[in-house]
């Protein structure tokens, strides 16, 4: 099976992102594929490169990055949702004249068309909200 995940929850404030990460790991361990991760709504915060945690706590954005890198996953952050929440890559930050950028390079920034494509192309679409 090829899964597409729609992740709507931010790191820590709700459990959605953590649940999605566990699902993704289990799917990959089980020999399934992940067609795309689509971070939307408050889920865009999982792409922040600035999240820091204490030694004894897991770093969710970092864990997502590691999973994406390890399995060469296609991860997309919705540009509109991210921009209005202040999650910007360097290109967007420059274009908008913002003081800094914070979006991890492991995620591509794109539009909702990628969510639609994921829905149409994957075998299963699952929402974590």
């Amino acid at each position: 099976m090829n899964f597409a995940l729609l992740i709507l929850g931010p790191p820590y404030s709700t459990q959605a992102s953590a649940s999605a990460l566990r699902f993704a790991r289990a799917a990959l361990s089980g020999g399934h594929g992940i067609y795309r991760l689509f971070f939307y709504h408050d889920g865009v915060h999982n792409a922040s490169a600035l999240v820091s945690t204490t030694q004894d706590e897991n770093n969710l954005p970092q864990q997502w990055s590691e999973l994406i890198e390890q399995h060469q996953l296609d991860s997309v952050v919705c540009i509109a949702a991210a921009t209005r929440r202040g999650v910007l890559n360097e290109q967007e930050a420059q274009r908008l004249g913002k003081a800094g950028s914070n979006l991890s390079a492991d995620h591509e920034v794109s539009g909702l068309g990628q969510l639609v494509d994921a829905s149409l192309s994957a075998d299963r679409m699952i929402t974590f909200g």
Partner: peptide, 11 residues
């Protein structure tokens, strides 16, 4: 907005 995107892509 997601629904409008679905429609726009012809789904």
């Amino acid at each position: 907005e997601a629904a409008l995107a679905c429609g726009a892509m012809g789904a």
